[in-house]
Amino acid sequence: MIQIQNVRQNYRAGETVVQALRGVSCEIPAGAFTFIVGPSGSGKSSLLYLLGALDEPASGEIVVGGRSLSQLTPGERDAFRRDDVGFIFQNFNLLNNLNAVDNVLVPYLPGGVSAQRREEAVRLLSRVGLGDRLDHRPNQLSGGEQQRVAIARALLKRPLLVLADEPTGELDSESGAEIYRHLRALCREQQSTIVIVTHDRSFIDDGDMVLTIRDGRISSE
């Protein structure tokens, strides 16, 4: 369960202050497959980054799984990002100097990777159809393949929350459909809550929750 209470976010660009979020409040039930839609510049990405504790709001409260993000210590925020949130970016954001398996294992590299975890990473990569590309670097993979590595990375930790910012934005519709297939299957299995920002409504199913943002506010649809 995610509770968002009156969240505001401002960006300062020189003299001008951009109000990206102007008081967003809503609740996302645990296990929901959620879409955030809305026009360009409406504040979708801004909200998503706040949910993943990648950024801090100007004001307001975000509670994920009973924990208020603004009250976490820096160490707890790191642990939250490492263990509870899986982030998927539009441009994949894999690390070029790591092969597919190590990219999946990246959250655990500093602390050391157990053999069991490595096996799990290989299993997940096989699940998304990359069982024969384990040693390949990102620049040896197609966009769709890279995004599947990113999905494996986000889901290896069995997170509470999967956040995806336009995950199919740079892919053709066929690869996009495949990404959604994997996302839906894995999230159902792991009972993760998922929030996806998208322009493309064609992947939204009937049972999904949809939040529409306009001008930094939730508008009911």
Binding site: L54, P74, D78, R81, F87, N93, L94, V106, P110
Partner: peptide
């Protein structure tokens, strides 16, 4: 810096980045 952002988004702490 993007790389460090990615690492942080994946839960790397300040200490981990310093270590790298």
């Amino acid at each position: 810096s993007i790389e460090f952002g990615i690492l942080k988004a994946n839960g790397w702490s300040r200490r981990d980045i310093l270590l790298l």
